[in-house]
Design a protein around this nucleic acid. Structure first.
Length: 413
DNA sequence: TGTCCACTGGAAGGGAGGGCTT
DNA sequence: AAGCCCTCCCTTCCAGTGGACA
């Protein structure tokens, strides 16, 4: 047998024209049902093209409501226009879920202002924070122009690190002479400003824009538009787009979810060699996406967090349902003993349980049982096709003995 | 109505680890 | 090398909580 293993795959007819158009990182030239929001943002940011300071803004809305897409679309257009008319406008976006401390956000902003030939990056640790801030100001002054600082998932940062950063950033114009800046915060949480100092709140929330969730019809329009450039004309069976839109509408109108569904459905259909994406591909894609999202989350949990999850799984394996924090702690404690790790305090474990809840791996509901105390009622909330015990065993050798009876790791001697 | 349970969750701070400056 | 700074993970302390029960 000769030939390359990719020969056959390359020759196989594809359902895609351009798969990139179905990814959420793709920025289309038109955003259906977001005209009002685009206009609100561009009306404010127009000031930058006049060399003035635009108002700071907060954009609210659920995940996948188009906040990031609208902001990035408007900022790109703004920067492009600035270049055309000779006004220096810079837009810098920071995802505060990944970059979630004051120091790191300032470092990221400062380092994104480096010219290509410059090499003096601000180190990821070691400097006092005010020095990083001063360096940021210095670089902005040096390059001049108007800066649009976009802080995506700002609610996450505020909850974790407080509002010092926002205080500093919204106060930046008082230290700037040749440059100007405005801050756009993007939040999934309408109430995050409750955590802010009143001065920061009033400075940051000069203009609020609320993005309502997409309804099924909106999602359908988005999918039709994307599918027309991403997929071949005859690639979709009747009702596929409507089903994707309806399922995503149930997920709080999440456009990312709708796009993922359509893309993964098409990938599955293509893998099967099917000439068309059918409804059953969408159903299969839905459970595959759920599993694909949760698996890396479990795999990348720190060891102690995995032990807590293991305790929940072990309790459920023995038939328990809705177990309490104290019971989880007892099992966790024994599990630590079993694998030879030292156990953490109940306070810390309580926090780890809350973290697992936030990640969507378990659900932990606070319930009061009268004189029998107040605790959390804990259930695992993993999709049925996710084998968490196996993922834990395979990703952390030390924890494998916990589920040893079920999964014997194949060791190569 | 007051007590009590089994916690929750905020606050403060310790210490290890990584890096910078002097 | 010493001193300083930041992050991360963790502990300790403690006030607060909701509702069953005496």
């Amino acid at each position: 047998m000769t030939g390359n293993i990719f020969d056959e795959a390359l020759e196989r007819a594809t359902l895609f024209r351009n798969k990139e158009h179905l990814r959420h990182s793709f920025r289309p030239s038109h955003l259906p049902h977001r005209d009002r929001e685009v206009e609100q943002l561009s009306f404010n940011l127009l000031e930058a093209l006049r060399g003035q300071i635009p108002s700071n803004m907060i954009l609210y809305g659920v995940t996948g409501a188009g906040k990031t897409a609208v902001t990035s679309f408007v900022c790109n257009q703004l920067v492009e226009k600035g270049e055309q008319i000779g006004r220096s406008v810079h837009a810098i976006t920071v995802n505060c879920r990944q970059i979630d401390t004051q120091y790191r956000v300032l470092t990221h902003l400062g380092n994104s202002l480096l010219e290509d030939h410059e090499v003096d990056e601000i180190p990821f640790t070691g400097w006092p924070t005010d020095r990083v801030l001063n360096e940021l100001v210095r670089r902005m002054e040096q390059r001049q122009g108007v800066y649009i600082l976009v802080l995506d998932e700002i609610d996450h940062l505020v909850r974790k690190a407080g509002d010092d950063l926002l205080y500093n950033l919204t106060n930046l114009n008082s230290s700037l002479n040749k440059a100007r800046c405005c801050v756009i915060g993007i939040s999934n949480d309408l109430k995050f400003t409750d955590f802010l100092d009143p001065r920061v709140r009033s400075r940051l929330g000069q203009q609020d824009v609320v993005f309502n969730p997409y309804v099924a019809d909106h999602l359908r329009d988005i999918l039709v538009e994307r599918a027309s450039s991403a997929l071949r004309d005859d690639a979709l069976d009747e009702g596929v787009i409507e089903l994707c839109a309806a399922l995503a509408a149930q997920e709080h109108g999440d456009a990312r979810c709708a796009l993922d569904l359509l893309r993964v459905s098409a990938e599955r259909a293509e893998m099967e060699g099917s000439p068309m994406v059918g409804m059953h591909h969408v159903r299969a894609a839905q459970s595959q996406i759920e599993a694909d999202q949760i698996t890396p989350v479990i795999r990348s949990l720190p060891s102690q967090q995995k032990l807590v999850l293991a305790a929940v799984l072990l309790a459920e394996r023995s038939g328990a349902k809705g177990i309490q924090t104290g019971e989880v702690y007892d099992i966790y404690d024994q599990a630590c003993l079993h694998v030879g790790k030292s156990s953490l305090t109940p306070r810390r474990v309580s926090m780890l349980i809350s973290n697992l809840d936030m990640l969507g791996v378990i659900t932990a509901r606070t319930v009061s049982r009268g004189r029998y105390g107040r605790s959390k009622e804990i259930h695992s909330s993993l999709p049925p096709n996710v084998d968490a015990e196996r993922i834990i065993s395979e990703s952390d050798d030390d924890l494998a003995p916990l589920f040893a009876a079920t999964y014997r790791r194949q060791t190569r001697l």
